[in-house]
Structures are given as structure tokens and as C-alpha cells.
Deep mutational scan, measured.
Amino acid sequence: TTTLTYTDEEEARKAAEELKRRGITFTYTKRGGTWEIRIK
């Protein structure tokens, strides 16, 4: 499992869109002031 952490929502959203485009499965979690993208 790879976890990407972002403090900028815009960056996190761009990363999530890129992963979706590649067909990669991930979970997206907001934790306080950070956003976590966990790639399975």
C-alpha cells in the first residue's frame, strides 16, 4: 500500500483524477487539514 499525503486540496484532487484516468484503485480520506490517497 502506498499512501500519498497532501496539504493542498487542489493537488490531492489532481492526483486522484490522474489515478482514476489510469484505472488505479485508491481510497481518498480527509484527515484534519490533510488529504490522504491510499493506493491498494
Rank of each mutant, 00 (worst) to 15 (best):
T1P: 10
T1R: 06
T1K: 08
T1V: 14
T1N: 11
T2D: 07
T2R: 12
T2Q: 11
T2A: 10
T2L: 15
T3W: 08
T3A: 04
T3Y: 10
L4A: 03
L4Q: 04
L4C: 13
L4N: 03
L4H: 06
L4G: 02
T5D: 02
T5A: 05
T5H: 09
T5V: 14
T5I: 15
Y6N: 00
T7A: 08
T7V: 09
T7H: 12
D8H: 07
D8K: 08
D8C: 06
D8R: 09
D8Y: 05
E9P: 07
E9I: 05
E9H: 05
E9W: 08
E10N: 14
E10G: 13
E10M: 13
E11S: 13
E11P: 03
E11F: 04
E11L: 08
A12V: 03
A12P: 00
R13F: 07
R13N: 10
R13M: 14
R13H: 07
R13G: 04
K14P: 01
K14R: 12
K14N: 10
K14H: 09
K14D: 06
K14Y: 07
K14F: 07
A15I: 09
A15K: 13
A15G: 03
A15H: 06
A16D: 01
A16F: 08
A16Y: 06
A16H: 02
A16C: 09
E17T: 09
E17F: 11
E18M: 09
E18L: 08
E18V: 07
E18K: 05
L19R: 00
K20V: 12
R21C: 06
R21V: 06
R21Y: 05
R22M: 12
R22V: 05
R22H: 07
R22Q: 13
G23R: 04
G23I: 01
G23A: 03
G23D: 03
G23S: 03
I24D: 02
I24K: 03
I24C: 05
T25V: 12
T25M: 12
T25S: 14
T25G: 08
F26H: 03
F26N: 01
F26D: 00
F26W: 01
T27G: 03
T27K: 04
Y28G: 02
Y28D: 01
T29K: 08
T29P: 00
K30Q: 13
K30L: 05
K30R: 09
K30M: 08
K30Y: 14
K30F: 13
R31Y: 10
R31F: 10
G32T: 04
G32M: 06
G32L: 07
G33F: 11
G33T: 12
G33I: 08
T34H: 13
T34G: 07
W35H: 03
W35E: 00
W35C: 03
W35A: 01
E36L: 11
E36M: 08
I37S: 00
I37R: 00
I37K: 00
I37E: 00
R38M: 13
R38C: 11
R38H: 13
R38W: 08
R38Y: 09
R38D: 06
R38I: 15
I39P: 02
I39V: 07
I39Y: 11
I39L: 07
I39K: 01
K40S: 14
K40E: 15
K40M: 15
K40T: 15
K40H: 15
K40I: 15
K40W: 15
